[in-house]
Design a protein around this nucleic acid. Structure first.
Lengths: 214, 214
DNA sequence: CCACGATTGGACTGATCGTCCAGTCTGGGA
DNA sequence: TCCCAGACTGGACGATCAGTCCAATCGTGG
């Protein structure tokens, strides 16, 4: 296992042994990434799961949730790779001897094989359990209408007379409900809110920036 | 592994090799019981999980569910031991050369260690702080896992050994559940089913063509 | 009538979808 | 053993979609 990164960087030199050790321990299914949080770049990476290398932008959301808390260790939380692999990740702020943040360490573990193993073991000689069947929210459009309609009702005014703040609130709610993980949701929401698609994205960016760093 | 039973009984002599073989295969966590269905007694038992021996009443519900069906093989179904161990059981009606029922074979597998292993694996590196508590986001991946896992269970074979027809059925179910209305669902499903993204679309087209033009 | 922020339509880039195909693998059958 | 047919794969591809950006427009208060 080679270090992929700038060995001349003192941070890489300093933390490399830890990173390599973790990467070795967790085998081929975990990658270890050392980030420069300030520059939002990858300093070094061990056993990469994607094609990122040193110098690439950090991507993912690895550095997003570090600010608000007073802690230095975050996670484990879940991420999703483009090819469908499901990751469990932890992050840690690494500090130099003065206590100043110098880098961010992320460990990303591919859960796919674990999930597979669970399915195998759970299925081994298991009695045929009744199927959960729990159907997916078949009509997410209806959910949009319900959320918007419910909001409109509490304000006592029709959609087209909602103010900017109102639309922001509704958007936040819809986003919270995960509506935008559904394909082609944006145009539907735009129509439901009686605004253009552009405005939907504009307002959405606002709610995500200030409103809820969940 | 000794036969515990009346070796002079021709039924025991005849079936003992099968029973011992199964008992050996499934190790210390499965017992094999040969019943005299008419007398409701244990004819012989290998690797007992309880203290039953030959001649004891059959107890359990091992012979209860044999009547109604025209089949000769039953289960797997679940039973519960007094000490809390959970068993997965199968039963088979054994017939003499004339086709007359002569005995009932039951295999009882202690699932406790398997359940524990599942719990360990499922909990290993599991994200403990799911970010958005949304109804959709990141939750639909688990829905995929559940549907696939549930299907695997009914087939009694792991994902990688599913046949073409099996995958078609799972795909139909996932499609029915609306999974593919979610963005980037296809790669996740492909991973879960251990096939390529191409094959997902190919099979999907098949199910949609023949099955339900929803 | 003007200033100004909000909104809009549309252009644009990159990501994702779904299709297609040549090459590979696999499990019989001659 | 060799060959064949069907299934699967990885990659490429065009079409569509997501999200950003901006100049033009709208609406409102001064």
């Amino acid at each position: 296992m080679e270090t992929v990164g700038d060995e001349s960087d003192p941070r890489v030199r300093g933390w490399a042994p830890v990173c390599r050790a973790v990467a070795l321990l967790l085998g081929p299914y975990a990658e270890v990434v050392l980030h420069d949080a300030a520059a939002d770049r990858v300093l070094a990476i061990w056993n990469p799961l994607t094609r990122r290398t040193a110098g690439d932008p950090s991507l993912l959301g690895e550095l997003d949730q570090l600010e608000p808390a007073a802690r230095d260790v975050f996670g484990p939380y879940e991420k999703l790779l483009a090819d469908g692999r499901r990751l469990t990740s932890v992050s840690a702020v690494l500090r130099d001897p003065d206590g100043q943040p110098s880098a961010v360490l992320c460990v990303n573990l591919d859960r796919t094989p674990l999930d597979q193993a669970v399915a195998v073991l759970a299925g081994f000689a298991a009695p045929s359990t009744p199927r959960p069947a729990a159907l997916f929210e078949q009509d997410w459009t209806e959910r949009v209408q319900r959320i918007v309609g419910s909001f409109v009702r509490t304000r006592g005014r029709p959609v087209e007379r909602l103010g900017r703040a109102d639309r922001l609130a509704v958007l936040a709610e819809l986003d919270q409900a995960g509506i935008f993980t559904v394909r082609r949701a944006a145009p539907v929401v735009a129509q439901a809110l009686q605004v253009s698609r552009s405005t939907v994205y504009a307002l959405l960016a606002e709610t995500r920036a200030e409103g809820v760093p969940a």
